[in-house]
Design a binder for these strands. Sequence first.
DNA 1: TGTACATCAGTGAACGCGCGTTCACTGATGTAC
DNA 2: TGTACATCAGTGAACGCGCGTTCACTGATGTAC
Lengths: 190, 190
Amino acid sequence: MVRYAKEHKQVTRQRIIEKAGHRFKQDGIDGSGISTLMSDAGLTNGAFYAHFASKDDLVAHVVADELRTQVERYDTLRPGRPGLEDLIREYLSAEHRDNPGLGCPSAALLDEIGRCGDGTKQAYSDGALAVMEEISARLTPEDPRSARAKAIGLFTIMVGTLQLSRALSNRKLADEVLEQGIENALAFMR
Amino acid sequence: MVRYAKEHKQVTRQRIIEKAGHRFKQDGIDGSGISTLMSDAGLTNGAFYAHFASKDDLVAHVVADELRTQVERYDTLRPGRPGLEDLIREYLSAEHRDNPGLGCPSAALLDEIGRCGDGTKQAYSDGALAVMEEISARLTPEDPRSARAKAIGLFTIMVGTLQLSRALSNRKLADEVLEQGIENALAFMR
DNA sequence: TGTACATCAGTGAACGCGCGTTCACTGATGTAC
DNA sequence: TGTACATCAGTGAACGCGCGTTCACTGATGTAC
């Protein structure tokens, strides 16, 4: 056995990225410091710059990784529209709302990403397109043009609804928004 | 004339709140420091605590003020559904997307508000309800239950679409999302 | 087999800076007499 | 009318703290001979 496994550093880097994804989604990008991020990954702050050029650099990689993971997760659902219905119910659940760290990066960070530099927005654009295509493919494979239009609508309803539910202090109202969101998304899908 | 006009301090306070609204929507809440906020209002940092108990206190007042202003603006539109169509087109315009500081507080700050303390979320809940009722009243006054449901859907489509458009680095794609958002909102409204 | 050296992921203290917050002070204007 | 004092919105320097970033160093393991 060698001093470090060949991919040791890459494994560590990936662990930093994944833990940072969780932390960013929970506390925001501005709300998460390097020291916290590194200690989440079981390391000290100094090692950060052996892995990333800057915090911005990390953010871009986290955004790309988060959306990639999301697409992969969608791939495990039932094919076609039934899988999409499952997805909608899971997405607009109280559990997802109450655990942003484990959930959708768009719902947790979309307006903050809009204020980020070009590297991060580029990563987001690429990833969001892939997510949209995933949704689109489940809608109407025979009519990709209108499917893409519906995919944008479905995506925005879901993200907007979850964000709204998270921002409400009244639990009952927040639950009502989620339930209504499910109906809205299902109605829009048809 | 007295030393200060009777309402001088209240006027100043209101100016701080309004300028802070602009700054928050542009740079984010975490991204806006007290010194910057006060200099936006033509004052120095020290005066801040003569007006607000803390930054959190200001944030809650800003959120309340922003949503109040938004409701008032909506009141100036044509009555009923035509006014709502105007609103949708104005909301999902490139101009609104490119000037977050002057625009919708929900589109600019919704996920950050979800991470704020209870005072801010309370203020947001109250304000968002008022906005939703404004939309709702324009949809189908004779059927308030389904109107409320549609209002939530319309609101989330609009907020989600604008946020998405802002987060995309590709201008052409961002424009396409806006245009599709208008069609989605109009379709959903009916 | 034993010793000297190279590699390199990670450590942890330190850098300057801006944060939210505090506070002694200023200075323009009002009131008392 | 003139002077002493009260009021109070705002000033600006300072507080401790955590930020993003840098860097001399450690220590475990590999290679050379």
